[in-house]
Every structure is written in C-alpha cells, then in structure tokens.
C-alpha cells in the first residue's frame, strides 16, 4: 500500500523552477496540469505559497501579478484588478467571504527546486 501511495505522490508533485528563479515578494504564474497557478516567494525568502491564478472577482488570470504582504499577520496577495486580498494559506478572500481561490501545496527539494502538488 505504502509503495503505491508513494508512487502517486511523486507523480503529483510537479517541478516548476528553481527557488532562485523567484524574486522575493514577487509572484510568477506556472502551468500545473491544466491549471494556472500563482506562486509567491515571501518573507525572508524561505516561504513559498501557491494559489489559483484566476481572480474570481475580476474574472481574469492575474493574481500572480498582485502585491504580496501581510494583513493582521496573515500572508496575503492583493488582486491587481480590484485590490481584494486573498489569504495565501487558505485562499479565502478577506473582503468577500463567498469567494475562495484554490490553494496548492508546495515544497522545496534538496536541490533547491520548487514543486507544486497537482491536486
């Protein structure tokens, strides 16, 4: 059983780029399967978050181009279109409870590559 799980897992983690390809506090968009995923490297550079790139309010694929920061201690990105904030950990929109964007797990491999889990 374990071996099977292991196998599925390793297929689901998709390598995106080197950590060093990302500028701290600046987002990029990656293609993960068919999904557009916004990836942010924040803080001192050791935290990597991934959420859907699609802004459900502005209805455009732009979230990777928003400004990241924190509000009341929560890491957020502000949509570049209408400035709503999305929690990078939960995907929740701070201004509109009914809107949430999908979040993706991320990890950094020993060789310094960023991987996103295709879920």
């Amino acid at each position: 059983m374990n071996a099977v799980v292991e196998k599925i897992n390793s297929e689901d983690w998709i390598e995106i780029c080197a950590l060093d390809d990302l500028i701290i506090n600046d987002g990029v968009c990656a293609l993960v399967g068919d999904d557009q995923v916004a990836i942010f490297r924040t803080g001192r550079g050791d935290e990597v978050y991934a959420i859907s790139n699609f802004d459900p309010i502005g209805k455009a694929s732009v979230l990777s181009r928003g400004i990241v920061g924190d509000l009341n201690g929560r890491p957020v990105v502000a949509s570049p279109l209408y400035k709503q904030h999305f929690d990078l950990e939960t995907g929740a929109c701070l201004e509109d409870e009914s809107e949430t964007v999908k979040t993706y797990e991320t990890r950094i491999t020993k060789s310094g590559m960023i991987e996103v889990k295709n879920s």
Partner: peptide, 8 residues
C-alpha cells in the same frame, strides 16, 4: 510586518 499593497 511585511508590508502590503498600500505601503509598498
């Protein structure tokens, strides 16, 4: 903190 879309 880390800043936000106002101060940055």
């Amino acid at each position: 903190g880390r800043g936000c879309d106002i101060c940055k």
